[in-house]
């Protein structure tokens, strides 16, 4: 089999596994199982990013999505309740809304340029210049780092501020619990 076909098969099976995991997350009543399934979902999407040659994104997804998020969800469960309250299993209204949204997105995505097409508008704007001049202008061989930290430094500053603000928000709500320490 040619490599492109194998890559396609891997991608399709990974996406199928992600769909199954998402269905399981929606159906399970045990929040503990849901947290672990979220971790599996993130790991699968990290594998998808590796297949798509986006190793930096895959790295972040594996570390943040599969690692830290799962731990934080488990830590939250330790504070609350590990089971979802039983409710009606299927609601026709939201189901129809979600199905309609899926159809709408599928219809809209049929208009998109092929994935990673060189003639796509996203690849014709500033990307060629970053790719060609980046290593020379910044002296950084990894173009992703050059774009994130230098060309798009302002955006990254915004992201760091968002993380900082989220931390402050949690701190304001829950506190660090630094009071009485027991040894």
């Amino acid at each position: 089999m040619p490599p492109a076909v194998i890559e396609h098969l891997i991608l399709v099976s990974l996406l199928a596994l992600m769909t199954v995991t998402a269905g399981a997350i929606a159906l399970t009543r045990s929040l503990f199982a849901a947290a672990m399934l979220f971790g599996i979902f993130s790991l699968l999407s990290a594998a998808v990013f590796v297949v798509l040659d986006a190793v930096d994104v895959a790295f972040t997804e594996a570390a943040v999505g599969a690692g830290i998020s799962t731990i934080l969800m488990l830590a939250t469960l330790a504070r609350t309740n590990a089971r979802q309250r039983a409710g009606p299993r299927l609601r026709p209204g939201p189901l129809a809304l979600a199905a309609g949204l899926v159809l709408l997105l599928a219809w809209a995505s049929s208009d998109r340029p092929r994935f990673a097409a060189p003639e796509a508008p996203a690849n014709l704007h500033v990307a060629p210049r970053y790719l060609q001049e980046g290593p020379r202008e910044t002296g950084v061989p990894n173009v992703v780092t050059a774009v994130l930290a230098s060309y798009r430094g302002y955006d990254t500053l915004g992201e760091v501020t968002v993380i900082f603000t989220a931390g402050i928000g949690v701190l304001a709500l829950l506190g660090l619990g630094g009071g009485a320490r027991r040894d």
Binding site: A78, I163, F164, G167, V170, L174, G177, A180, R181
Partner: peptide, 20 residues
């Protein structure tokens, strides 16, 4: 910042040992 916020989130969610 990312290191600190991750640890901070965990400390906040894990809470104090003892009464809480």
């Amino acid at each position: 910042t990312v290191t600190a916020v991750m640890i901070l989130l965990f400390y906040a969610f894990a809470g104090v040992e003892g009464a809480e």
